[in-house]
Design a binder for these strands. Sequence first.
DNA 1: ATATATAGTTAAAGATTGTTAAAGGTAGTG
DNA 2: CACTACCTTTAACAATCTTTAACTATATAT
Lengths: 226, 226
Amino acid sequence: MAKVLLAEDDENLGELLKNYLNAKSFETDLYHNGEEAFEGFRKEHYDLCILDVMMPIKDGFTLAQEIRSFNKVIPIIFLTARSMKDDVLEGFKIGADDYITKPFNMDELLFRIEAILRRVKSDASFQPQVYTLGKYTFDVQKQLLQSSDASYKLTTKESELLKLLCDNANQVLERNYALKTIWEDDSYFNARSMDVYITKLRKYLKDESTVEILNVHGKGFKLVMY
Amino acid sequence: MAKVLLAEDDENLGELLKNYLNAKSFETDLYHNGEEAFEGFRKEHYDLCILDVMMPIKDGFTLAQEIRSFNKVIPIIFLTARSMKDDVLEGFKIGADDYITKPFNMDELLFRIEAILRRVKSDASFQPQVYTLGKYTFDVQKQLLQSSDASYKLTTKESELLKLLCDNANQVLERNYALKTIWEDDSYFNARSMDVYITKLRKYLKDESTVEILNVHGKGFKLVMY
DNA sequence: ATATATAGTTAAAGATTGTTAAAGGTAGTG
DNA sequence: CACTACCTTTAACAATCTTTAACTATATAT
């Protein structure tokens, strides 16, 4: 069950799409402009974004840029009425995964959504994702954190949390976002559980002084690397 | 528009990849062994390297090592045969960013390339912000204020406020602006809280006479440096 | 000069986070 | 099923960070 963020200012088209996607068992939230959509993105956890390019207050490209600054991997599909090529290129520079030109067949959109999710999923399960943390390398698939001195087999939660921190290196990883991504819901106890895992991760990294997990009071955590 | 160095001894696969990447608007140069590739690396500027591990004359790992000795940040992706397992780890110690196992889907390779370039770009846009305050240096990311005599780990709020003061060094940092930036809203209590933090910052800086936080009555504060 | 608003300082209260250990769950094995 | 090993959550308490409160000092205006 994937959660979809839909940003579309046209009320009719928006509702139509939302209902269609819900019927196809994508839990879809509709926002009517870029600003609303970004707020929603920060508060909830989504697996995929569908953004209209032309929207009031904040356009789709700007929105995508902001979303990318918080999440480098979430798939983004643009809806564009214009078939202008330059705009499309602009979108891909920001890190879009696909675009679809209005008017379009909804089945076609569905097909593309499924294709992208399939690719991302198979990619994630097949492709090694490896981060460098000072002297350590962190292999997400293998859940392995190792240096020449030490090698730690991480648990699922440890690994998921460290991956999120790495994805947001040198920026604040917000508590709520992490909780909704890893724990599904942000409750008091899950938040405490997360704190316990932060302690565990800090222990693993304690002998690498160039990597540190800082707390940002009331907001979340920040993985800083020098 | 990114330039890609591709080192692959298999003529068919090499040309196929080159054409594919060119079509995806990556300007790709193909080299047929490690030695050629290294010469090319020295002559041209590339944004990313894709290296086959098994190549005649000079293998991919050795090549990567040489490339790394000249450039510590350029992303390197290895192409490896499926059988290799421990060898792959060897590659990461040299500083590879990712590896992909043959046979692979070209779309998946493209996805990895884009993901890595996105990451590198956002890393590059992150420049460590360090201010000099007399004998102190203030590292915003690390939230660290240190001199040869003392080192203070700043809290989030202390750090945010000091950063704003530094950004507005020798000019007035207005109360309302600071409150709205750091505390989200300017209320009586937040203003008082800010005053408390000004006191804290002054304490940290008290033994550095060339730096001072002045009050501008009714307006805000000014960080003056001589 | 005196009143009033603004700022300085310190300490306590309140909120969040850090840490450790025990309890509860889950998956594998004999 | 019982046993084990490991992972995750809950609980309890300590430490730290932020806000509030109270009191003092200074600046500005009447």
